Computed example of a mutant assay.
Amino acid sequence: MPLSLIIEKVDLYSDWVKIAKQRLTAYGFNISQLVRDEEVSLEYFNVLLHLTIPVHSRQVFYADTFNCPPELHAGLLAFIEKIESGRNLRPHMSRGVKKVANRDALRYDWGIHHFHLGTTLAPDGFIIRTEPVLFAWVANNAVYMLGLYPHGAWSQQEVLQVLYRNWPALLSPYTIKGASLTHVLTDQEVAQARKAGVTVAFQVAEGVAVVPPGGGMPTSKHSFRAVRDNDKLLDNLDSMTEQLRDPNSAFMQEYERKGAFKKRTLSFSLVEHNTGCMLIEKHNTLHFKVDGIPSLPLP
């Protein structure tokens, strides 16, 4: 009869935080202000969802009212060429994306990016700032050009209305079926709601209301999507940890039947592997693929 299994080490959460720190640092983010481990994990998802755009080619579509002032036309053409050829759009984003804990209410609430259309690259790698700025909805395979707006027009609901009028299917997942708003917010009220961390619905056409297509934000001013995805990952890591610490769990019993645990003291670690993560047990040299831990896009 084999000796009982001894679980020497299982700390997947700490392993994950270490991986997240390494990835953020490699991407160029200063994480010195992230004191607590839970901050690191949450801000990792903020970076993933809001401060980076995967680099690959996309089609470009224009709203019916799209118009670019002559002085920004060259910058617009250069930006379009980058989109269609699959080049990095990061230099055109806000300089705030350099900060790991940058808060972007426009992204959090409406899922919309703003871009600068300058043609000169500054020493820090970002395009010289321009105004007005381009508002666009960035999807996996397309960029939907909504229009050029003053810097700071983050709560101008016309932007959402333009998006719905031209591409209603994009907002279909967020449309409130069979309901209309009893009070249509003003742009100022939208800004006040965001400042208070209150999630509200928006009217995009007569009788058509949507919940925040960007997911919205709680009173902490974080992104709901980042909070949700971070909580999901941490729940999965907790579940994995429970199984690894329990010799009688389904996972452990399966590999016990296979005779995988020749050495009876086990030490599990979550490690970086290529663009993903892997679970290893060092004493028996076992490797297990781990799904559900997203990587940052290539810089």
Rank of each mutant, 00 (worst) to 15 (best):
R58Q: 02
A101K: 13
I31Q: 01
F29T: 03
L89W: 01
L34E: 05
R245Y: 09
Q161A: 04
N284W: 04
L34T: 03
H114K: 13
G216Q: 02
F135P: 01
I112V: 14
E158T: 12
Q22R: 12
A169P: 00
L48Q: 08
P132N: 14
A153R: 03
R36G: 04
L163N: 05
A142K: 01
N30Y: 07
E242K: 11
A191V: 02
R245I: 06
K258M: 14
G147L: 01
K195I: 04
R107M: 14
W110I: 10
G214R: 04
K262F: 07
P212Y: 09
Y108D: 13
F135W: 04
T175M: 12
P218I: 02
V40T: 13
Q203V: 08
A250N: 09
R228M: 07
E81R: 10
Q188M: 07
T219H: 03
T285Q: 15
V198L: 13
G152P: 05
T52W: 01
T120P: 00
G147R: 00
L298C: 07
E81M: 01
V10F: 00
P299G: 11
W137K: 15
N236A: 15
Q203R: 12
P69D: 10
Q203S: 15
P212D: 09
A169S: 13
V204F: 01
N67D: 14
S57A: 15
W137A: 11
A101H: 13
V60H: 01
E84A: 00
G276C: 05
G215T: 07
D109L: 11
P299W: 06
D15W: 06
E38G: 03
S32Q: 13
N284D: 09
L72R: 13
Q253K: 12
S32L: 06
L298F: 09
L117K: 11
P69F: 09
V162P: 00
D109R: 12
S269I: 03
N67A: 15
A179N: 09
L134F: 04
M252W: 01
A260M: 12
S57T: 05
N248G: 05
R228W: 03
A193L: 05
R58F: 04
L106Q: 03
N141V: 02
V200C: 06
M145K: 01
A205V: 00
P123D: 13
